[in-house]
Design a protein around this nucleic acid. Structure first.
Lengths: 238, 238
DNA sequence: ACCGAAACTTCACGGCGTATAGTTTCTGCA
DNA sequence: TGCAGAAACTATACGCCGTGAAGTTTCGGT
């Protein structure tokens, strides 16, 4: 009956319901794709009416934005964890760990990948600055860590390049430059190019465009990684 | 009043209406994204009832499949034309022409790119073997031409690789092997990897994921191409 | 005990794909 | 030339969707 106890109960119930809405939405997405995320289906699953959800999320797009944030954060956690777990002494292994974690997460959560990187849901309009700027930055920062690990060996590839700090988003640089003070602009460009390599193969695979052409996307991806570390000039072994 | 004249008229009207449906659908897509492709909106635009469209396409998905085919074919035409127009004597220029045509087409037709490579339309189910197998194969074959042009210089990168013909789709190989009889399996793997590189950067750009990080996706892409030809060991100039 | 807010329901609107049935219009043949 | 039949199209209906407005229930705080 204390003030905090009472208000705490209200808030706790509210938080629980919010969590259940998100959980049900993610379950629906996992089984039926992002398209299956509908307020009415969520409410049905929860034994409520669709309008009850408006007490927790202003619009469906708000809910979707929150989901994207959660899912994108989970992806960022996964790749960060893989990076941390790999030995800091072996850049090649670390880069491959990051990349394999990225691909594996995408294959395990294909609908989540679509939610983040594809057209999430019919008619969805992302908010200003993207639906999950923080998670996106975390992934980008992780990529920059790959680039930083590779940079001592790879910088020779960027002799003639003309990248400048002004080519990149200040918000990204705010996170990246303090973490890697010695890195030049070209290394950030390298990070984004790495992203392109990985994203391209993985998204072709997730969307089924590779399946029609090859039986072994896995082999393709591992070959990509092998060539990548080799091209960047990263020594293998400890 | 001849038999052929009469039947010709019917068929001509039918063909015209079919073409108008597709044109209106593509216009709607261009202005409102793939989501805007709805039978009711198309019919509204044409002064018809939505159900009238069922006389021309069995379901909405059938219409979408046809659209994907048309759009994918247009993309294939664009990249093929760029490839043909570039001098056969300079592989680096030819590869860059192909890649730039790919990116340019995607930036000019972002909604088309989404239609082909993303989740096309709410609830759309692609038919067996993909919506546009021929166009997809054409693009893949074009990529293999890039790989073939690069192969004499790049094959050293695939010394230890273990690719086999059985790793790839027979339907793809039927088109590719006659055209490039001397090419080993690893070269097809290279083609798919090239696809990944280009697709990754372009799709990140089209879906706005790069915009949040860099002001110059163009520079990034050109750098990618420069490194690509360099890595593959393709000599520049004639 | 009671007030007020929060949580939730009910009803309604317009949009969607599409199945069924009915209507108009045109073609080809006797 | 007239008419059967097919083709083109409309009307109506069903269940799905997001969402707004208004009404009802529930419950913590005084």
């Amino acid at each position: 009956m204390t003030v905090t106890g009472s208000r705490g109960r209200r808030e706790r119930l509210r938080a629980e319901t919010t969590a259940e809405i998100k959980k049900v939405a993610l379950d629906l997405m996992a089984s039926g794709g992002p398209d299956a995320i509908t307020l009415r289906a969520i409410a049905r699953e929860m034994g409520m009416t669709a309008n009850a959800i408006y007490g927790y999320f202003a619009t469906r797009d708000d809910l979707v934005t929150t989901l994207i944030n959660d899912v994108y954060t989970a992806l960022a956690d996964a790749v960060d964890a893989a990076w941390e777990a790999a030995p800091a002494t072996d850049p090649a292994v670390r880069i491959e760990a990051w990349a394999n974690a990225f691909r594996t997460w995408a294959l395990v959560n294909p609908q989540g990948f679509r939610l983040i990187y594809g057209d999430p849901v019919p008619g969805y309009q992302a908010p200003e600055g993207g639906p999950a700027p923080d998670a996106a930055r975390r992934v980008c920062t992780g990529l920059t860590a790959l680039a930083a690990a590779a940079w001592p060996h790879a910088q020779r590839l960027y002799q003639g390049s003309t990248f400048d700090w002004s080519d990149f988003d200040p918000g990204l640089l705010d996170k990246v430059r303090p973490a890697f003070p010695d890195l030049p602009p070209a290394a950030v460009a390298l990070a984004l190019r790495l992203w392109g390599h990985l994203h391209g193969l993985v998204s072709l695979e997730v969307y089924g465009h590779l399946r029609t052409q090859t039986a072994s996307p896995e082999k393709l991806f591992q070959e990509e990684l092998a060539q990548l570390t080799q091209t960047l000039g990263i020594p293998r072994g400890r």
